[in-house]
Design a protein around this nucleic acid. Sequence first.
DNA 1: AACCCGGGGAT
DNA 2: ATCCCAGGGTT
Length: 367
Amino acid sequence: MPDALTTSEANHAVLVETEIQAVNEDVNEVHPLTISLCTWYAKCRRDLPWRKTRDPYPIWLSEVILQQTRVDQGLAYWERFLEEFPRVEDLARADSERVMKLWQGLGYYSRARNVHKAAQAVAAAGGRFPSCASELCDLPGVGPYTAAAVASICYNEPVAAVDGNVIRVVSRLLDLELPVDRAPGRGAIEGLAQAMVDRNDPGTSNQAMMELGAMVCSPKAPKCSDCPVASGCLAAARGTALERPVKHTRTRVENVHFTFALHLHPSGDQVWMERRPAGGIWGELWSLPFTETPDEPQKNGLEAKSWGPFKHELSHRRITASCHLSEQGVEGASGRWVDFEDVGEYALHRLMERMWEQIGPEIAGKR
DNA sequence: AACCCGGGGAT
DNA sequence: ATCCCAGGGTT
């Protein structure tokens, strides 16, 4: 560290000082960085449909859909859900299979099950959502982030909504060297995030932080020259933005092989499908039955037909799949015979969709 | 605290 | 090829 602070570092010290005073003395004081941030947000924010309402139902639905999911991918799902279920009561009494089908392709399918359960809880309470963040947290699938987002946007509750974007923004503002996925680092992030909440309009300042992370303070190519809070950013001053946030956990990818079995009904126009158990991979989605094998299974040469390999990448697994026509009997209460032309009506995982795209026409054409 | 859960786009 | 996303639940 140089003896003299750079201008940006001096600025930063002043801003942190201001933040402490704001908390201790005047709850109506707005953090200077927040003022710059919200001015930028008012001008540059994306025109997203869930920003046109403060009704907790569509807001909550958007927040859950957008967990670990990009706007471009989630937007169409949000629209389809609201078109089919305009009110939370409509979602509550929907058929579970239909909810899963609407969620198909979005991933993290426990979100769909929890969305359904939470809607039923809200409907049972007269259609009113819990009215503060701590009570929102009691809903299935609603954690600290989603509760804070809904409470700040819908109820003006001054609580920071700290998601991946905010973690990145704040870790750069502070040039935080502590890992953000450990308690001390996380605490430092929460501290500044909470201090930057505009108590007069917490929903706006929260969304401005997230918008900044999404549009300017991006992971790989941050646009510091366009950033409204660059003057208060230590990482920008030191040129360490690309090194933030520091993370302790490393995602390790495991190679696995899934062997799928294609059982054909003697009638010649049905296939055996199974519903995946909740909790595991692709929980409650429909699939051809499969087993996980450590390596590529050796072909025995006796099989009538096989397909693949299909490659499927998940965040933590690299799946190589093959599908084999099976002559063995089927077992298990979780399955049923499905007409070839009805397979597409079921909620399928992505790999199943892609396999069926190849297998379906081939076996249907052989009849 | 560690681990699990999908999918896809940006780089 | 790598990273990581508008996280939450379970153990």
